[in-house]
Computed example of a mutant assay.
Amino acid sequence: MMNLKQYLSKVPDHQAVYTPILYRLNQEQDHQAFLELLSQNAHLQVTDEILSQLKELIKISNPTRKLSPEETAGAVQQHLGNQPIETYGVWVYYPWSGRVVHIVDEAEFIALRTSRNMHKITLEEQKLLKSKKIGIIGLSVGQSVALTLAMERVCGELRLADFDKVELTNMNRIRTGLHNIQVHKVVVVAREIAELDPFLRVKCYLDGATEENLDDFFTNGGNLDMLVEECDGVDIKILSRVKAKALKIPVVMDTNDRGMVDVERFDLEPDRPLLHGLIPEIDIKSLRHLTDAEKIPIFRPMLDMDKMSDRLKFSLGEIGKTITTWPQLASSVVLGGAVVTDTCRRILLNQFSNSGRYYVDFEQLIV
């Protein structure tokens, strides 16, 4: 068990810290390290609501009975046995916020946090999803996707890749606070996931997805089960699909316009052409470092730009004139998070097997 100084020494840039430290006080080494943490950091914000979690645990364990407060208290005490409540479960320390939170340990935590998924997601399905690994490239739409996947616990591991940092102009669609300006997007997302669920494994690629690290992104620690591709780089958009196809990994993409979701089932169709055969014949190396205006002629066939909304079509013509890049709306980004998460879950549970492009277009559906 690392102490705080050892932990931070392994991360030269403290802005890149996104992994919480877990202390189990029934283990002597952790107990001593936790006492040291408290003694050296008088400013820590400590939240200890373990009793409410134990009451919830008793409640979901007795769905056919409405227990009285006295019965619940007795059941909690019986559940604890002789163990002091302060040593029960896990104390989670979040270095970036100076918070310490007392929670039940992993199995009980997952049972509680997913209890209201039942029976829309069965126990057997939850167990299967816990074994899945999902990679996300691009953390604008990808932020909404990552957080929704985490909330629904559609996987046990997330790998996040984006080289960019949060700017104020991103905050029309990226849900975060002003204190995160100039923090890496992947770190912002990873921290929020850790604050929601410290038991979800998250690995961040702060340089984004690159030709050099794609193999590590796809295979280190076991192959990905799903790729969610949401990046702006044309070369990585193509190269990531080349790798996914070679490894027979399905790819899902949301385009943040008209609710369009693109699915490529390379796991079921290993000979399927990349992006449904819509990628133009072009030298991939020539696609690096293009401006947004230069990307448009290449993106046009790949993303079916002729089917885009009228307002986005108009906006694309304004890049470099009245705007610097294509616009994205929070409502569309949040919709993308929902649609991609639902699609990924159904693919991973073998409930959806098609490739293609699908639209959840509010202007067409709500008229």
Rank of each mutant, 00 (worst) to 15 (best):
E195G: 14
V251H: 05
I193Q: 04
L247T: 03
V187R: 11
L247Y: 03
G233F: 06
D262Q: 13
K248N: 14
I236T: 11
R258D: 00
V202E: 11
D207V: 05
V251R: 05
M253C: 06
P198H: 12
C204N: 11
K203Q: 14
D235M: 04
G222F: 05
V183S: 12
A194M: 13
T210G: 06
A246Y: 03
D197P: 00
G177P: 07
D262V: 14
M253R: 04
L224H: 09
V189N: 03
G222D: 02
A209M: 13
D235L: 01
V261T: 15
E195W: 08
A209N: 10
D254Q: 07
E212R: 04
V251D: 05
G208W: 03
L206V: 14
S240F: 03
V187C: 13
A194L: 07
E230L: 07
H184R: 13
E195Y: 10
A246G: 08
L224W: 07
K203G: 00
F217V: 02
L224M: 06
K237G: 02
F218G: 11
L227Q: 12
D235R: 09
V234H: 00
G221C: 00
V187A: 11
G259N: 02
I181V: 15
C204P: 00
N220C: 09
R201D: 10
Y205T: 05
D235V: 00
E195C: 06
E211F: 06
A209Y: 10
E230V: 12
Y205E: 08
E212Y: 10
T255R: 10
K237P: 02
L247C: 02
D257S: 12
I181F: 00
L239I: 09
L214W: 03
E212N: 11
T219K: 05
L239S: 08
T219P: 07
L214T: 04
G208V: 01
K237R: 14
P250R: 07
D216F: 01
K203V: 13
L227R: 06
R258Q: 08
V186T: 10
R191M: 04
E192R: 15
R191E: 00
V261L: 09
R258M: 08
I181T: 04
P250Q: 02
D232T: 09
K237T: 01
T219H: 00
L239D: 01
K203T: 15
M253W: 04
V251W: 02
H184S: 14
T176Y: 09
G222S: 02
I236D: 09
N213D: 02
V186D: 03
G233D: 13
D197L: 03
M260T: 12
A194C: 12
D207M: 01
S240G: 10
T255F: 15
H179N: 13
D262R: 07
R258H: 06
V228H: 03
V202N: 05
D225Y: 08
F199G: 00
A244Y: 04
E195T: 10
D207W: 05
L206P: 10
V188I: 14
E212H: 11
V228N: 01
C204M: 07
V188Q: 12
V261M: 12
I236L: 13
D207S: 06
P250H: 05
A246D: 12
E230A: 15
L200S: 00
L206K: 14
